[in-house]
């Protein structure tokens, strides 16, 4: 009995001693815009979505002197709690990463009219007639024209693949992923009207975004039917697509981030989504006093989407094709080509 009491007393003494240690003031003081970021449940280290937001905020920290705080939520109620914690601290801008923050951001924006909020991939609510509802003036929805980037990689697949058949593997069958497919197919048909697009989805639930086995199976079947290039928009299901590309020595196109390292030599390019640029842009606007609520679309013109063309894959893209793609990009930006999103 006494031993236990002595043990606890020693621990508490050690605790008290350590309270005196460490740096005195943890609060980073100084100028600069104050930014809070709440990640999606996946959190840091997902190599696409959340990491993109982190990079954008980190760049703002370096280039704009922004002071950034990150929160990684656990269960469902932590999303609102995290946003509220940051808003209550008087942040200049609070960012929620992922469409799942839609409801929480709408509520917080109403409760904290003096704080500005940004939602990456925010799902703008619609009224009963399907028209988008106006957003509060302190809330900006950062949305991406995934179809425009997909159009370019579709054209690339048809021009550089060396086959009249190209493939597409989607994750969860949903309007968001169909946007990728529609843009991709339009790009293929634009440069090669007689080409065929093979299309398959891994499933109808969110689990379809993390099923590499299914991804490999679908990709192998498409390669077997004559496709030389397969574009995937399917989260980690795409890891199976890369594996299939390696197995049959075909080509795959990555998504969201540069996925070249997943299968070096077998990745034609990646359709990248500039979440970092969008987040950085939102922070810059707050700093410059040009923040405005509403929907902000990031397409080719805003460099919000694009494709990778660097030392890794330069050899896979012939120069005439590169010039053709540049012309297509200019046409889309100028509005001469309208890319469908459904």
């Amino acid at each position: 009995m006494r031993n236990v009491v002595v043990f606890v007393a020693i621990l508490l003494a050690a605790h008290l001693a350590m309270l005196a240690l460490g740096p005195g003031d943890a609060g980073a003081s100084g100028e600069g815009v104050r930014v809070g970021v709440v990640f999606d449940v996946g959190g840091r280290g997902d190599k696409s979505f959340n990491d993109g937001a982190w990079q954008g905020a980190d760049q703002a920290r370096r280039d704009l002197g922004a002071r950034v705080r990150f929160i990684e939520p656990g269960e469902g109620t932590d999303r609102e709690a995290g946003l509220r914690l940051l808003a209550a601290e008087g942040m200049d801008l609070v960012v929620g990463v992922g469409f799942i923050f839609t409801d929480d951001l709408l509520q917080l924006a109403a409760e904290y009219p003096d704080t500005r909020f940004a939602g990456v991939d925010f799902a703008v609510p619609t009224d009963s007639l399907g028209r988008p509802r106006p957003l509060p003036p302190n809330l900006v929805a950062l949305k991406f024209r995934e179809e425009e980037g997909s159009f370019l990689v579709g054209a690339l697949a048809a021009l550089a693949g060396g086959s009249r058949t190209v493939g597409f593997v989607g994750g969860m069958e949903s309007p968001l992923i169909r946007k990728f497919e529609a843009g991709y197919a339009a790009g293929v048909k634009h440069v090669c009207p007689s080409c065929e697009v093979l299309s398959a989805y891994a499933g109808v639930t969110p689990a379809a975004f993390r099923n590499p086995g299914k991804g490999k199976e679908l990709a192998l079947s498409q390669y077997g039917r004559g496709a030389r290039v397969i574009y995937h928009a399917s989260g980690s299901t795409g890891l199976g697509v890369f594996e299939a590309a390696r197995a049959v020595r075909g080509l795959a196109i990555g998504v969201d981030a540069d996925q070249y390292p997943e299968a070096p030599g077998f990745v034609l390019t990646s359709m990248v989504k500039g979440i970092d640029a969008a987040v950085f842009d939102a922070i810059r606007r707050v700093r410059d006093g040009t923040f405005a609520g509403g929907v902000r679309q990031f397409g080719l013109a805003e460099r919000g989407v694009g494709f990778v063309d660097d030392a890794n894959n330069r050899a896979l893209i012939p120069d005439p094709v590169r010039r053709r793609l540049a012309a297509l990009r200019d046409s889309i930006i100028a509005g001469r080509i309208v890319v469908p999103s459904t």
Binding site: V4, A14, H15, M18, L19, L21, G22, P23, A26
Partner: peptide, 29 residues
């Protein structure tokens, strides 16, 4: 006693972790 012992241990382990992150235990707690 077991929960109290556990709390005391957790406090000290927490102190050590906080210090390894270069923060002050007093401020974090």
């Amino acid at each position: 006693l077991p929960p109290l012992v556990a709390l005391a241990i957790a406090l000290v382990v927490g102190d050590l972790l906080i210090l390894t992150f270069g923060q002050s235990p007093r401020i974090v707690w």
